[in-house]
């Protein structure tokens, strides 16, 4: 097991190298550069050339690639052409936002998915089961961006229960430390941040969490039904162990592994895939930053964003596999 982890950790830089190369080349293949955006009208002869030289875009593509890789191995993601800011600090600002949103969405997904799955699995073949299964497919079928807008119409416009955008109301003064609002609330002792933050994160988390809950619902449902058929549950029932206890002690424990995997996979997918929710709800996350950078040809930012998202994806998958092995006694004992 240690060997496997080691092999995959070794492979991480290789993956990142390829992702970095891919995005580097893809960006340069796109028409245009940020020069045109930077100075829309050049009235002095030679100014455009000066800007190009300032940004290092006069060097050959391989020279630029060499510089880029050289910086990358020193964990330097470079500087934004358009904003002059350090890409690392931009990632530091946007990544926590995306992780925060992904975690909140995972909470919604897990509660909704497991809740519906347990309920449906407990009464297989009934009307309730059919209904829940339909609902789970329905939720999956809703386009995120559209579902987000509908939630805004209903819960913001009509009911006024939630704010429509952002992470905190404008009345709150708050100087970010980690940029994770909840962690900052603890560090700074600012517990007044918690409720407003929850209100702001609810709609985006519902949008992403509910639409992704279907897989988990099915998995839980099938798991419950399958486990209920197994010998030891039957034995437990025959021994007279009360229903709910069997349910939670045995069934849930067996389903937990699959659930863990789904959560891990979804977490990885949400980091890159939450762009849409970030756009609809004005959440300043890393996905949005990266897409905007592509559209503005802000090479360093787009590269940095893609590399960081990919790194997290790989690490989360690794962590998922590890926790899977750790949680599954059969795998821990080296298989049975």
């Amino acid at each position: 097991m240690g060997g496997e982890v080691f092999r995959r950790l070794i492979f991480l830089p290789v993956t990142l190298f390829f992702v970095a190369t891919l995005v580097f080349l893809a960006l340069r293949a796109l028409p245009g550069s940020s020069i045109e955006l930077l100075g829309s009208q050049f009235t002095t002869a030679g100014l455009k050339e000066q800007l190009i030289a300032d940004l290092g875009l006069d060097k050959s593509i391989w020279e630029q690639y060499g510089i880029f890789l050289g910086e990358l191995v020193r964990f330097d993601l470079g500087r934004s052409f358009l904003t002059g800011k350090d890409v690392s600090s931009m990632v530091g600002e946007t990544l926590p936002v995306t992780i925060e949103l992904a975690v909140a969405s995972l909470v919604v997904m897990t509660i909704a998915g497991i809740g519906m799955g347990l309920l449906a699995g407990a009464f297989p073949g009934t009307l309730a089961d059919g209904l829940l299964r339909t609902v789970s497919v329905l939720l999956f079928s809703l386009p995120w961006f559209w579902f987000g807008i509908v939630l805004i119409i209903v819960f913001v416009l009509w009911l006024g229960w939630f704010p429509a955008f952002g992470r905190l109301p404008s009345s709150v003064d708050y100087e970010a430390v980690t940029n994770f609002v909840l962690i900052d609330a603890i560090i700074l002792g600012r517990f007044d941040l918690v409720v407003p933050w929850l209100k702001h994160v609810t709609l985006p988390a519902l949008t992403v969490g509910l639409t992704t809950s279907g897989v988990l619902m099915r998995l839980t449902r099938v798991g419950v039904i399958e486990t209920a058929k197994t010998d030891y549950i039957r034995t437990a029932r025959m021994k007279g162990v009360p229903g709910p206890r069997v349910f939670f002690r045995h069934i849930l424990r067996n389903v937990a592994l699959g659930i863990l995997t789904v959560i891990g996979v979804q977490f990885g997918a949400m980091l890159g895939g939450s762009v849409i929710a970030e756009v609809v709800f004005g959440y300043p996350g890393i996905g949005r930053m990266t897409v905007d950078a592509v559209l503005n040809r802000d090479y360093a930012v787009a590269q940095g964003g893609a590399i960081v998202i990919a790194a997290f994806y790989v690490l989360i998958n690794l962590a998922t596999d590890l926790s899977y092995r750790w949680a599954d006694p059969r795998l821990r004992r080296g298989g049975r």
């Binding site: 913001v156 704010p163 709800f281 004005g282």
Partner: peptide, 14 residues
């Protein structure tokens, strides 16, 4: 920062 029109209008209204 309120980049999207939907959010701008709802927050004006609220």
């Amino acid at each position: 920062v309120i980049p999207e029109p939907v959010a701008q209008m709802t927050s004006l209204a609220s």
